[in-house]
Simulated scan of single mutants.
Amino acid sequence: MPSPPQIPTLPSLYAAARLTPVPRPLFPPSPSINAKISLHQGSIVSVSTAAIVNAANTSLLGGGGVDGAIHSAAGPGLQRECAALHGCPTGSAKITGAHNLPCQKVIHAVGPNYHRLGHAEAEEALRGCYRRSLELAAENACRSVAFSAISTGIYGYPAAEAAKVALGTTREFLGGPDGAKLDRVVFVLFESKDVEAYRDAVPLFFPPAETQ
């Protein structure tokens, strides 16, 4: 199971020409922040960061896709613990133990259904998911956290736009007062559309330093 030291960070991806710099990034280069960001293609249930972020629904009781895979791998204890949380509103997140998963905590983020909301409302809700998840990781001493691509499956959020929300929110958090509480943020991408979206968007928010 891949752990953070085994997953390459952005400086390595730039050095291997797997990411292409853009002429007008939205943030200045930060070698220290870039060293905290990883992209990994695969299943989030096999990533052993301190916390993983589940793409949950408002009931927190499991569902399809990533949500179903996480509940299946964690075992029935996760659903019992989630039941005691009495759900979670869209745009927020709650935290539980990991049970049989190879991590310490599971953060359940409820993303927006893009088909049901206007773009502005969906964007704010998705931003809230990432922001609250990062806050919960920091508050619970989880120095590494892995995200699935929230809302880009059956909830229909366009992959390219979702990647920008995820990366922009993460860049702002890591540059803020609690950014030092996190050592690694891994974006775990299962579908090819999400892989392509993140490779295109990363240089906008995490441009390479001259030495990378």
Rank of each mutant, 00 (worst) to 15 (best):
F147V: 02
N140P: 09
H119W: 09
A160K: 12
E161Y: 03
A125G: 00
H108W: 11
E81I: 13
K94S: 10
A83K: 15
G62F: 08
A93G: 08
Y198C: 01
A149P: 00
V110C: 06
R171D: 03
L182M: 06
N140C: 07
A109Y: 07
T152F: 00
Y155D: 01
A162L: 02
V145Y: 08
G87E: 11
G91M: 02
I70C: 07
G65S: 05
L189W: 00
T169C: 06
G153H: 03
C142M: 14
Y114M: 02
A109V: 08
A180S: 14
P177H: 11
S72Y: 14
N140K: 08
G118D: 08
G168M: 05
S92E: 15
P102S: 06
V110Y: 02
R184D: 06
A160P: 01
G168I: 06
G68S: 05
L85E: 11
A73E: 10
P158V: 03
R116E: 10
A160W: 09
A197V: 08
S133Q: 06
A93L: 06
S92C: 07
P102G: 05
P89N: 12
G111R: 04
H108L: 10
F187T: 05
P112E: 04
A74Y: 14
I95K: 03
Y114W: 12
L134F: 10
S148D: 04
S192C: 04
A69G: 11
E135H: 13
E161W: 04
G176Q: 07
F173G: 06
L78W: 14
V188D: 01
Y130C: 01
S151D: 00
K164P: 00
A73N: 09
N113Q: 01
A197T: 07
E196L: 13
V145S: 07
L85S: 10
Q104K: 15
S148Y: 03
A162M: 03
I154V: 15
A122R: 00
G91C: 05
A166Y: 08
A138N: 11
P89Y: 07
K105P: 07
C103F: 10
V106H: 09
P177F: 06
G91P: 09
V110H: 03
N113D: 15
C129Q: 07
G87C: 11
A125L: 00
A83W: 12
A74K: 13
L174G: 11
Y157T: 00
A159H: 12
Q104A: 14
V185Q: 11
R199I: 02
